[in-house]
């Protein structure tokens, strides 16, 4: 139960983590994340790595779609741009991982700015179709710009290393991903503590009055596209270095839609929601797969029916979630916290 939560300075009132209890839990979470790779098996670490990449990508998309209201169907393509940038820079120029990581973000951000330029004139579904076009064009480029991307064969990457320290194993790379995910989440949360983030939300809620409040719409929409595709590019670079291979099949339209699903299930316009959504969309299908796999012992033939069933159950889960909690997992979490704030009393 939380009582006596009074603030004496504006700085304390503006803090993100406002009470000692919250900071304690956050510390415990950090500790758990640090210990995790030493106790978990290879498979779990791999899952954690994939989830971490999804978190970076989902936070990026949420800045653009959830907070600024610009629906994007090209997020996977920007990840692809980042992944190919890092692969090409690594294999051709031999640049170290620490350099390719920000560079892949920058290249993806430039693509994002170009794709975002029509947002001056278009909004809503029309912009959505424009970003879909970007997805298709970039997809096409990945396949057919053979001299650069090696087409459908893709590019193999050597294991990354930082200052001579090899990150070949999933365990070592885990720390890179977790650190980057934490940085990305923190940076995005910070945006929304300043005028930049307020401008984003204002554009989403009412763009006409936002402009009359002194916000340069075009500039801030481009900022949102830039931040979003920068993070997508970094996520793509992480994915490339994790899988050690890049092919066009890693970044289909379906992945863009999956990222949209992540932020919708997690909570549009919520940083925490992007994390929840990324975890949900990555981990739940795996849980379904392994739990349905247990039934395989009963009858080997059964997998023929169970395999498509996974997808059906997963789809149903999303629908049920959205019906009962349209504001996503973040809103569920908020209500849960509100309940325990007074627990064990009713009010």
């Amino acid at each position: 139960m939380r009582i006596g939560d009074f603030k004496e300075t504006y700085a304390a009132d503006e803090a993100v983590f406002r009470t000692g209890t919250v900071r304690l839990w956050l510390g415990l979470l950090g500790l758990a994340l640090a210990v995790f790779p030493f106790v978990a098996g290879e498979y779990l670490i791999y899952m954690a790595n994939i989830t971490g990449v999804a978190v970076v990508g989902a936070v990026g998309l949420n800045v653009l779609t959830g907070f600024t209201g610009q629906i994007s169907l090209g997020h996977a393509a920007f990840m692809g741009v980042g992944a190919y940038t890092s692969a090409i820079l690594t294999t051709r120029l031999g640049l170290p991982f620490l350099l390719t990581l920000p560079l892949s973000g920058v290249v993806a951000a430039l693509c994002g700015l170009i794709v975002g330029a029509p947002s001056m004139r278009m909004k809503g579904l029309y912009l959505c179709i424009a970003t879909l076009a970007a997805q298709v064009i970039l997809d096409f480029t990945f396949v057919h710009w053979e001299s650069m991307t090696h087409g459908i064969r893709g590019i193999n990457l050597p294991p990354p290393s930082i200052f001579g320290l090899s990150l070949a194993g999933g365990q070592a790379f885990y720390f890179v991903i977790v650190t980057l995910a934490a940085l990305a989440v923190t940076a995005c949360r910070n945006i929304f503590r300043t005028r930049v983030g307020r401008a984003f939300i204002a554009i989403r809620d009412r763009d006409i009055s936002a402009e009359l409040m002194g916000i340069n719409l075009f500039r801030y929409k481009l900022y949102a596209f830039g931040v979003s595709s920068f993070l997508a590019g970094m996520a793509g670079c992480l994915l490339a270095n994790l899988l050690k291979v890049v092919t066009p099949e890693h970044f289909p339209l379906q992945l863009s839609i999956q990222y949209l699903a992540m932020i919708i299930v997690g909570g549009l316009g919520s940083i925490l929601g992007s994390i929840f959504g990324a975890i949900f969309m990555t981990v739940v299908p795996e849980i379904l797969r392994s739990s349905l796999g247990l039934l395989q012992g009963l009858d080997p033939q059964i997998m023929r029916y169970l395999f498509p069933l996974q997808t059906v159950i997963f789809g149903l889960l999303i629908v049920v979630f959205l019906v009962f909690e349209p504001h996503g997992l973040a809103e569920m979490w908020r209500r849960l916290k509100a309940y325990f704030r007074l627990w064990p009393f009713e009010y």
């Binding site: 940076a187 910070n190 307020r198 409040m213 002194g214």
Partner: peptide, 19 residues
Amino acid sequence: IKLGRHAHLKTGLLSSLLY
């Protein structure tokens, strides 16, 4: 209300990331 002050503030995109 804070949004109203937008035009008189200076924080740019990069410094907002760092806060």
